[in-house]
Computed example of a mutant assay.
Amino acid sequence: MKLIIDITSDFICPWCFVAERQLSQAINELPDGITVETRWHPFELNPDMPVQGMDRKTYRTMKFGSWERSQAMDAHTVQATQNKGVAFDYAAIKKTPNTFLAHRLMQLARREGVATAIAGAVFSAYFERGADIGDIEVLADIARDNGLPRKTAVNFLASDAGVHEVRAAEHAIQLDGIRSVPLININGEIISGAQSMEHFRIVLHRAAGLIATDSPSSTHNARN
């Protein structure tokens, strides 16, 4: 039995990170005989972000009206995700990056069969270590640690490789009317927002024909 999972997300979206972790845990609990193909699709929350990114305090203050409101939103994220395998370190994040390079890296990772590993590592680098994931050198280090030769990643990102593919994918997503992330499609069943591991488990098991019941869950959409 093979399950196809399509994930539309952005790497600066905290709920996308939570969804990635919760879904990953649910996939790991699937019984033997069920394989999963995960396909990642790019979404930029800030398509007009300068290439070099922006000071996070400045950007978040402009976007949300005050730094205090931004901090309150961060605190809510941390509180809502306790005991979910996520260790947010917002104090370590100094810059809100442009994520286009990271999405381009995913094109290379997909071709080499390590897209899911790279995606999880990029999320972790940003949210748990405060790394500048808009920087080629940072992304190259992530690639090296997750199945891609560092030099290959540097050369890929320093060229125009993957630019057309990402732009075309983003255009297709816009035509589909997707306006918020995460959006996850598991064998045709759409999940919007960061759901619990249990909810993902139920959807995965239903898609695999193991159960026929559903369970309610709460939804969180990205606003970062």
Rank of each mutant, 00 (worst) to 15 (best):
124 S>H: 14
71 Q>D: 11
91 A>D: 15
73 M>H: 08
128 E>K: 09
118 I>Y: 05
152 T>M: 14
175 L>A: 11
51 V>N: 15
86 V>S: 07
150 R>H: 08
50 P>R: 06
154 V>A: 09
59 Y>M: 11
173 I>V: 11
51 V>Q: 15
68 E>I: 00
144 R>H: 01
64 F>N: 02
116 T>P: 02
94 K>V: 04
137 E>I: 04
78 V>I: 13
180 S>K: 06
178 I>Y: 04
183 L>N: 03
79 Q>K: 13
65 G>W: 06
62 M>F: 10
122 V>I: 15
179 R>H: 14
58 T>N: 10
151 K>G: 07
135 D>L: 03
144 R>Y: 00
109 A>S: 15
130 G>M: 09
134 G>M: 04
174 Q>V: 02
182 P>T: 01
190 I>K: 02
81 T>G: 12
151 K>N: 10
121 A>W: 08
51 V>F: 15
70 S>W: 13
76 H>K: 12
126 Y>C: 04
98 N>C: 03
55 D>R: 08
102 A>Y: 00
165 E>L: 04
97 P>L: 05
62 M>P: 00
52 Q>H: 12
55 D>L: 12
142 I>T: 02
75 A>E: 08
83 N>C: 10
77 T>A: 12
100 F>V: 04
179 R>N: 14
156 F>W: 11
115 A>P: 02
54 M>R: 14
87 A>T: 05
89 D>R: 15
94 K>M: 05
167 R>G: 00
60 R>W: 02
155 N>F: 15
67 W>C: 01
87 A>S: 10
173 I>W: 01
127 F>Y: 14
133 I>K: 00
60 R>E: 12
107 Q>V: 15
117 A>N: 06
152 T>L: 14
64 F>M: 05
103 H>T: 05
131 A>K: 13
95 K>A: 05
187 N>L: 00
105 L>P: 01
165 E>T: 07
173 I>E: 07
95 K>F: 06
72 A>I: 04
91 A>W: 08
148 L>W: 03
91 A>C: 07
62 M>K: 13
185 N>C: 02
123 F>N: 01
73 M>Y: 11
54 M>Q: 14
51 V>S: 15
75 A>F: 02
141 D>E: 14
143 A>D: 14
50 P>Q: 08
148 L>Y: 03
142 I>Y: 10
174 Q>R: 13
114 V>R: 08
107 Q>L: 00
97 P>H: 05
120 G>S: 09
